[in-house]
């Protein structure tokens, strides 16, 4: 691994970004946005945070493409389970 990837500067930048969007997610709630917009916003923020952690802190961005695919593609399957369960949830009642 080259020194560029381990540079402290990048980490600090990522850290600041993470804090900024965490705060953004936190202060958006009392604004009284419509429910779906608020939820969308929150989920996008979570995905951004997750993406930053995985890409920079876990170095995935700097690994080979084949490794990246082998880690990320399987996650589609668990998302499929979640989607099916949520869909089931809207058509059944407890």
């Amino acid at each position: 691994m080259s020194k560029q990837e381990h540079s402290k500067k990048v980490y600090i930048k990522v850290w600041i970004w993470l804090l900024a969007i965490t705060i953004a997610g936190f202060i958006v709630s009392p604004l009284g946005l419509p429910g779906w917009l608020h939820n969308l916003f929150i989920v996008i923020i979570a995905l951004m945070k997750g993406g930053l952690i995985v890409a920079y802190f876990m170095h995935l961005k700097f690994e080979r493409l084949s490794l990246i695919y082998s880690i990320l593609l399987p996650l589609i399957l668990i998302v499929a389970l979640a989607v099916a369960l949520l869909y089931e949830g809207t058509t059944r009642f407890l």
């Binding site: 880690i71 668990i78 389970l81 979640a82 949520l86 949830g89 407890l94």
Partner: peptide
């Protein structure tokens, strides 16, 4: 990845409870 599936299953189950 494997562990993510465990958490994924928990969160998916939570999602189902939440919407039902």
């Amino acid at each position: 990845v494997s562990d993510a599936f465990t958490f994924g299953a928990f969160l998916a189950a939570y999602g189902l409870f939440r919407v039902t």
